[in-house]
Design a binder for these strands. Structure first.
Lengths: 194, 194
DNA sequence: TCAGTAAGATACTGCTAGTAGCTTACGAAG
DNA sequence: CTTCGTAAGCTACTAGCAGTATCTTACTGA
């Protein structure tokens, strides 16, 4: 690309990551090639390989760049049902976005590498747990739920079921009726049982 | 391979499928190559491509061959908890077997092809639903559960959560404690609620 | 007996991950 | 201002695999 001044260190690394992010957003993980990233970043493949050991490693780093930084707080609609639907809808939006698609592609391609798998999983799975616990705690304060419901399993059951929908159905978004079904038939009965 | 008599039609097709099954069991979907299958079957790649349009299609056909034909019935331990644990343990065994690993590899590789995705999903997702409904119906007859619990969502919730564990954790088997946690904290409370 | 069909063998294209080695710009130390 | 090490840039390469093409040869059924 005949840069006027040759980039180095952090600047170059940032340029590569930005290129990888753009490629991921435009064509996804499956079709991303190292040559493509190098070309877009205006550099060469071996420069990339000096920093990341493989295509997967680069894409995981790029994926991390894509995550929204400003985490929004837990919703507070006044009822547990409203909060749960809001959280689940938000999770559904995230999972059906390009970011979610890329995460699923990555997860599907990594399950031979337990190391990378764990870091990816931790980053995503436990991302929203605290929100659910917050919402449940508020509901407990209102007397809506008993303390028996405050286990991680129950707190995450809705998101877990949503994730299962994606695992089975692939890339398409999950219908809102499924969300209400999960909330009304599973989450609320578990949370509010006497 | 200099066959004495050249195989044709169904015999050849069966030989190819058998070779593909063996390759899948030994090295998995990811590492299976068409050259490898052809060599093992003692034939040539283009013969395979005359019958299946792609590697994925061949492997789906081979996967179908691997499925156990003799479906065992629903367990009957006398209690809903025992039945549920038996069913969930069985599902866990299946999912942690080579067959389960191959299914996950296939699912992860197919989500661009909605057609194949659907046939695969139907084959597996709905495979065990009837068992859960049977077990729930028996429990209802014993008075253990109310009719409110007999929705497909509740019937499959345990397997759905188990599948989620695999989606997050990769190829490793799920610990028995997780199974009991799912049954005791989610399935039983939902099934037996008043 | 004689076609038509399909198996078999081989070679090829095209694509991509990852590697190697050389050249050249930068930048820090003196 | 000079020198020298490091890393960027460039180009070319290997190796492996999906999928295609072509030609020869064996079987089969009429």
């Amino acid at each position: 690309m005949t840069q006027v001044t040759r980039r180095r260190g952090a600047a170059l690394e940032a340029a590569i990551l930005r290129a990888a992010v753009e490629e991921l957003q435009e064509i996804g993980y499956r079709d991303l090639t190292m040559d493509g990233v190098a070309a877009r970043a205006g550099t060469a493949k071996n420069v990339i390989y000096r920093r990341w050991p493989s295509r997967a490693a680069l894409c995981i780093a790029a994926y991390r760049e894509m995550l929204p930084t400003g985490a929004d707080g837990a919703p507070d609609t006044g009822s547990l049902r409203g909060d749960a639907l809001a959280l689940l809808t938000r999770a559904n939006d995230r999972m059906s976005s390009p970011v979610g698609r890329i995460l699923r592609e990555l997860l599907g391609d990594i399950h031979s590498d337990p190391e990378r798998l764990r870091e990816l999983r931790d980053q995503v799975a436990h991302a929203g747990v605290s929100h659910w616990l917050t919402v449940l705690a508020r509901a407990a304060a209102r007397g809506e739920v008993g303390p028996a419901a405050l286990t991680p399993r129950v707190a995450t059951v809705a998101v877990d079921l949503l994730r299962n929908e994606y695992a089975l159905n692939g890339a398409t978004s999950v219908a809102p009726e499924v969300l209400t079904e999960i909330v009304d038939q599973v989450f609320l009965p578990l949370a509010t049982r006497s």
